[in-house]
């Protein structure tokens, strides 16, 4: 095993071990924190395909996170009020079933990513950052001004949605669900990274001209990556809303987009487990430093500066060195 693999295994062990310990020590809040970390990690793993492998610095991924959240909020709120979402031309009712909600969350955020990607991927560099930010803000302000689903106040759900065979209200069970999803998505991303698509996407980030001159189209590669990336981040959004039993425009704000990027930078851009480690450290800092000072972001900022200046490959890069080209 390479050193990076060891770090990956260790980070998963910590993410799983802490809530198990908390279960025995009867500290349900710690389990909730770990769940939060797993969900943030999932959002970051989604963005990492676009940002790390594809080189697409999207400052609008909160849009997909929030769309996933609202997919859950809208479906569940209709289910709890027994009012159908629409009756004509065909009946669509709300649901409290997590698998259905996840599917809707992924499909809607994938469609949003397709629409945003088609337009914004025609640009690159700082223009791409600005356009994704602009789209993100559009969705944000739309949510604020949409009174049907709470507008600025957001939307509360009374009871967490259900998953067949589990009691999702028990913190450790909901954590387990999120953890398994995270692991499955990590496996998927690992496969994509090693696939033909992954090789070409990563080559397009390194050298667009090279990819064109072997007859492949960077635009198509990036668009597909952006859509997959949006869908995964949307799934994370649905889980996050379910964790809080609440969804509000905050999930769509550009600060949220920034935070997802921060998870990736802390752990290591383009590294499979970068966002996992980043999200865990983010939650740890938020919890420990947040207790000391309301302005704990100052310390986060110092950490980020340190990493950007001294450890270009994030924490994984600092401890495991340059990424090994896979065989």
């Amino acid at each position: 095993m390479t050193r990076e693999t060891w770090i990956n295994v260790a980070s998963l062990a910590v993410l799983l071990g802490v809530p198990l310990w908390a279960l025995m020590a009867d500290e349900p809040f710690i389990i909730t924190l770990a769940t939060r970390a797993a969900i943030f990690a999932l959002a970051g793993v989604g963005l990492n395909l676009a940002l790390g492998t594809g080189g697409l610095v999207s400052l609008g991924h909160a849009a997909f996170f929030g769309i996933g959240g609202y997919a859950m909020g809208i479906l569940a709120s209709h289910a709890q009020s027994y009012a159908p979402i629409m009756e004509a031309p065909f009946l669509i009712e709300g649901t409290k079933s997590m698998p259905v909600i996840w599917l809707v969350a992924m499909v809607t955020s994938a469609l949003a990513a397709l629409a945003i990607g088609v337009l914004s991927l025609r640009t690159s560099g700082v223009y791409f950052i600005m356009i994704t930010l602009a789209f993100g803000q559009m969705v944000y302000y739309f949510a604020i001004s949409w009174p049907a689903y709470g507008g600025e106040d957001g939307l509360s759900i009374y009871v967490r949605n259900g998953f067949p065979g589990l009691n999702t209200l028990v913190p450790i069970q909901f954590f387990g669900l999120c953890f398994v999803i995270l692991c499955l998505v990590l496996l998927l991303m690992n496969a994509i990274h090693k696939s033909a698509f992954g090789l070409a996407l990563s080559a397009a980030r390194q050298n667009e001209t090279r990819v064109l001159s072997v007859g492949l189209k960077p635009y198509h590669l990036r668009l597909v990556a952006f859509v997959i990336s949006g869908a995964v981040t949307g799934l994370a959004g649905a889980l996050f809303a379910d964790l809080n039993r609440f969804v509000s425009p905050t999930m769509l704000s550009w600060q949220m987009s920034g935070e997802i990027i921060i998870f990736i930078i802390i752990g290591g851009v383009g590294r499979l487990f970068g966002p996992v480690i980043g999200a865990m450290i983010f939650i740890l800092l938020e919890h420990t430093l947040g207790g000391l000072s309301e302005f704990w972001h100052v310390y986060l900022g110092a950490l980020l500066l340190g990493i950007v200046l001294f450890a270009k490959g994030g924490l994984i890069g600092a401890f495991a060195g340059r990424e090994k080209a896979h065989d």
Binding site: A191, I192, K194, S195, A196, F197, G198, L199, A200, L216, L221, V224, H326
Partner: peptide
């Protein structure tokens, strides 16, 4: 190039 699961 749209193959996502097979290691290239």
């Amino acid at each position: 190039v749209m193959a996502f699961f097979k290691p290239v």
